[in-house]
Every structure is written in C-alpha cells, then in structure tokens.
Design a protein around this nucleic acid. Structure first.
Lengths: 220, 220
DNA sequence: ATTACTAGCTCTCGAGTAC
DNA sequence: TGTACTCGAGAGCTAGTAA
C-alpha cells in the first residue's frame, strides 16, 4: 500500500470516519493533507478503488466512511507503533522451522541441564530443540537480547566433559509457551532454539519450512 | 514530512533502531520496504539530512540509529493512532478563542440553569461562556456528539420566557476542567461554548484569537 | 549479501477546465 | 466553502556502475 494513501486514510479516521460517515469535500481534505484539491480527489478515488473507503457522492457534498478493509490497514499500522513504543518488554520474530540436526536432543537430555530447567523455567523440556531460522535482517532485534537480563543456566561437569553456561528467555511459539536458549559463548546466529514442555511439532502441527511466530520476553 | 520517509523510519524502529544502533545494509532495508537498493539508500541519505537518523558508515556495513528527532516524529504518529483506536471516549479539538458576544453571560446567570449546573456538573459556572471556533472540517467530529449520551440540563420557565434544554459534556480546555454546552435545538455550529468554575481568560491567560485545545469526554 | 551517483524512464502533481 | 479528467512539468524510481 502506498504510504500517501495510508496517510490519507489516517486523516479520515482522525476526522471520525471509522464506522461513521463524515462530510468532507476534496478541498477540505486537501487542506488537511497539505496538498491540492486534485490530488486529494485522486487519493479518494484510489482509496475507493481499493475498497478502503466508501463514498456517497452528492451534488454539493460527499459522505465518506472508512471500510473494514481500510480500518484493518490502520490497525496493522497501529499495532506496529505499539510494538515500537509500548510492547518494549518483548521482541517478535517471524521465522521458518528448520530440520533439526538432533544435536539439541543430546543437550536437552543432560541431567545437569534438565535439573536447572525444571528449577528456573518450571518445566522439563521435551527432548530436542525446535530450531527456527529468522530473517537475516532480524539479527538486529536479536542483539537486543545481548545486553538484557536472562535466566542463566549454569555450566556443569560430567565425568567426560564440561557443559557450558546457557542463557534462556521465556518465549512463545505460535502462542505456545516455552523458552529460547542461547549458548553463552557462541556468536549470535540466525537460528533460535526453542524448548518446551511439549512435543511442539505434534502439538502445533508444524513441520520443516513452516512459518512460525516467536515472541521473546525480556526478564525484568 | 514525506510519507515514505516516515515509513522508512518506522521500519528502522521496528528493527530495534530506537536508542540503539542496528546493522543494516541498504539492500536489506530495500527488501523490508519492498523497493530497490538505490531508493533505500536515498531514503537513508534524506533521513540523515533531516537529522532523523544517525549513521556510521563502514566499509562493509553501516550502523544506523534513530535520533531523538526521528523518535519524536514516530511518537506523534503513534499518538494519532492511539486517538483513532484507543482514546475513543473523547474528542480532541483545536480552536481559536472568539470575542464573546456577552450573550453567554445572560444565560449562565439564570438561576434555573445555575441550579442544574451545580447539581449535574458539580460547579457553578463563572458568568459567561468562553467561545471557541473550531475548524470547519472538524464539524464532523462534533457530529459524533449528536448520537451520544450527554448531561442534560432541563428546560425551565421564568415569568418572562422559557429557557430551552441544553446538553453538556465534561471537557477540558488547555488542561483546565469545565464543560461544553450545546443548545438542544440549534444546529451544530462551529463554535463551542465552554463553561467553567473559573474565569478562564484570566486563569489560562488567553485572549481573543489564541489557539486552544479542547478535549470533550463522552458520557458512559 | 558495500554505498550512492548519473541518466533516463516512470509516476505523481496540480493548473486548467468540464461537468 | 461541488468532483475529477487531461496533460505538461517535475519529482521519484531503478539500472548501470564507480568507488
């Protein structure tokens, strides 16, 4: 959607055109948008074509109402601003489920980790991690986690080797609760490892390549 | 501000660029914005010129952060969306103080009105009304009041004449409490009549022609 | 998975104007 | 305190490419 159409729609909404007809001439609208009458008129025609407004054209005045489609667009926008300024206790990612390498299973079955997961996260993870690849550009959001408080799983020893410390964040995947685990030492990659009480592939009916939504919560 | 620059700024903010440097190439940004690398680059140059972002250009990557100026712009936008979808219990007007015709004084000194103001609004208005002219286009917002619940001041008689029923809404003018009075029968005009406990011209130090902000609250 | 200039194409704007 | 088309000027876009 063209940015200027969105602005126009917003202006109409501010004048009360959501779920309500308002009376506004193209010239009046033009003044609000600081443009010409012709341009305002063209915007209205475009918005109408896209089904975002409904118009009743009279001889001396027109009535305009934002439609459901238009309102949805505005709400999407509103949600984005909320994410920027209000939902600052979380980060939202879209990603794709990766075929697991089975590596996660090895770690999530270590008693030394399990005990701490139970204690600090309140659940024993289903064996294995659900790996989700996020878009490259979103590595920036991931970095925000770097400097924030986390649930720390301490390193421990077995007779064979040392298992390193891990940072966890409570998270949801497609609405289902669990946590994200970030190995302390490794570099930030574009793969998130999700652990959960449940076998998520079954519970959420997801398979490799599916798009999922992950919300990571900051610790206070 | 050009709408497409605002969108760009929003996109950067969503990627975490508020109070925080993010690493993003013009090509990556272009993909987010669904445009070309060249256009994204130009947007960044424009935003930089306007002081809305700060950049650190490296040889292989650039760091970008939204500045205070940029953040303010986004917050303005956020506020507008809040007004559309969240602050639906009120309407906000900007207007200009008009020279009173002294007519308001006559009405606000009628015992029949005063008694009801005290009872239903909780204050006795200072004699006279402060008249505020709103922009013509905002008549649409005013119409929203038409179908909503109001504080009704009943009509009454004196030996000489009948004083008509009036609808009131609690309101604030430049933050100061009072109420708006709308005569029941007259047509909606572009003048709001504000009454208050205080002599507002003195209290708020406003004179004819001054811009004021009025918030009208809907009754639940 | 570099940025940004130049050149030419394309889209958008608004004056003029029909209705 | 009408809407909206035409069309010329100008702004915005991207392919090519330098750095």
């Amino acid at each position: 959607m063209k940015p200027y159409l969105l602005q126009t729609l917003k202006e109409l909404a501010l004048l009360g055109a959501i779920k309500n007809k308002i009376e506004i001439s193209s010239l009046e609208l033009a003044k609000q948008l600081e443009t010409s009458q012709q341009t305002a008129s063209r915007y209205l025609v475009e918005l109408d074509k896209r089904g975002m407004i409904k118009r009743e054209l009279g001889i001396k005045k027109q009535l305009i109402m934002v439609t459901g489609i238009g309102e949805e667009k505005l709400q999407e926008e509103h949600l984005q601003y909320k994410q920027i300024f209000e939902l600052t206790d979380r980060i939202i990612f879209k990603g794709k489920v990766l075929s697991g390498l089975g590596e996660g299973r090895y770690y999530t079955e270590q008693e030394g980790y399990i005990e701490q997961f139970r204690e600090k996260l309140g659940f024993v993870p289903h064996p294995g991690t659900l790996n989700v690849e996020i878009e490259y550009v979103e590595r920036n959001k991931l970095r925000l986690l770097k400097n924030s408080k986390a649930i720390t799983i301490e390193e421990f020893q077995t007779k064979n080797r040392t298992f390193g410390s891990v940072r966890c964040f409570r998270a949801k995947i497609n609405g289902s609760e669990g946590a994200i685990v970030l190995p302390l030492r490794t570099h930030y990659s574009n793969v998130l490892e999700f652990i959960s009480n449940d076998y998520l592939r079954e519970k959420l009916n997801i398979k490799d390549g599916d798009e999922v939504k992950i919300i990571i919560y900051f610790e206070k």
